[in-house]
């Protein structure tokens, strides 16, 4: 599976991949839930190339982030992952219909060339170097679209190359897409609850609802939630500022190794005070969150 992620990375083929996590490793517990594959997905596919990771926290986010995922894939011409798990996939949730039907999100195909655009280009180059790292994309079958999408390292026109300069050019071009994302599409994680709460719970993806439910049930202002539904690329400086300004932190993850925690520490250097990790194949329950919060405050 992951070889095709790597392939899409170098051929710069837009692709949206839904990853439905289940407890592993290997066959694991196929009909249960876990958040155990974040770092695997982040590192999937050998070689260095940009990826975008999204992890919707509830049904509404699944809908909206999927729309966004396709636009991002087309814009950056790179793999975009939507990370869910059994809890989201098999769960039931009602959403007001108006939230879906009134949500307008125009389709944006990025630098996809039309037939008219193509006729104006004399020698089309699929992997043309550019300041934002993104090259104009042609669809085979149109007139003047002649190009090669190549899994080997390539020149701007797609021919295979081993030349050091041309190789560097393409690596830097691909990497530059992540920098462009940080400038144009990065969004900070969202805080739910009282900004001044003495304790911040940090979670990602499907572990949004249990924390919000715990907040509702405990009816206290003891803690708020910092929820990540966009996991990569990350703006290290902005996140470092945010995370180091929190009074006390509790990482809440449905896995045994605290993978979001590891990712944030890798990106910002910040460590987390406490951890609530559950990996029995069941989602974290609001009462477990309340019990943990009470035990550390």
């Amino acid at each position: 599976m992951v070889e095709s992620v790597s392939l899409a990375g170098i051929t710069e083929t837009p692709i949206v991949i839904v990853m439905g996590q289940r407890p592993g490793p290997a066959t694991g517990m196929p009909t249960w839930t876990e958040q155990g594959d974040l770092l695997f997905i982040l590192h999937s596919g050998h070689g260095e190339f940009p990826k975008i990771l999204l992890a919707p926290g509830d049904m509404e986010e699944v809908y909206k982030l999927t729309l966004e995922a396709f636009n991002l894939a087309d814009k950056y011409q790179t793999p975009v992952f939507i990370i869910v798990d059994k809890y989201i996939q098999e769960g039931h949730q009602s959403v007001d219909k108006s939230k879906i039907s009134e949500f307008k999100y125009p389709v944006d195909r990025g630098k996809l060339l039309s037939q008219e655009d193509l006729l104006k280009i004399s020698a089309y180059k699929r992997y043309l170097d550019s300041p934002d790292g993104i090259s104009p994309r042609a669809i085979p079958g149109m007139e003047n679209s002649l190009h090669q999408a190549n899994s080997y390292e390539h020149l701007e026109d797609g021919h295979t190359t081993e030349d050091a300069g041309e190789r560097s050019k393409q690596v830097e071009k691909r990497n530059r897409k992540a920098a462009t994302y940080l400038k144009q599409d990065f969004q900070m994680p969202r805080i739910y609850g009282d900004d001044n709460a003495p304790l911040t719970l940090i979670s990602w993806g499907s572990m949004k609802a249990p924390v919000l439910q715990a907040m509702k049930e405990s009816a206290s202002h003891k803690f708020n939630l910092l929820h990540f539904n966009r996991l990569w690329p990350l703006d290290r400086e902005k996140l470092k500022l945010l995370l180091s300004g929190l009074k006390k932190t509790l990482l809440v993850e449905n896995n045994s190794q605290g993978q979001l925690g590891q990712l944030l520490t890798m990106a910002t250097g910040v460590e987390f005070d406490e951890k609530l990790l559950k990996f029995t194949g069941r989602p974290i329950y609001p009462e477990e969150i309340i019990a943990k919060v009470n035990s550390i405050t």
């Binding site: 085979p140 679209s145 090669q148």
Partner: peptide, 26 residues
């Protein structure tokens, strides 16, 4: 312009650079 040639990997796959057509080197 109006065809697609898909190449595998190997000496034969290296025909990607010797045959000019809309191609995907898989």
């Amino acid at each position: 312009d109006k065809m697609a040639v898909v190449f595998g990997i190997g000496c034969s796959g290296n025909m990607n650079d010797f045959l000019w057509a809309n191609s995907f080197h898989a």
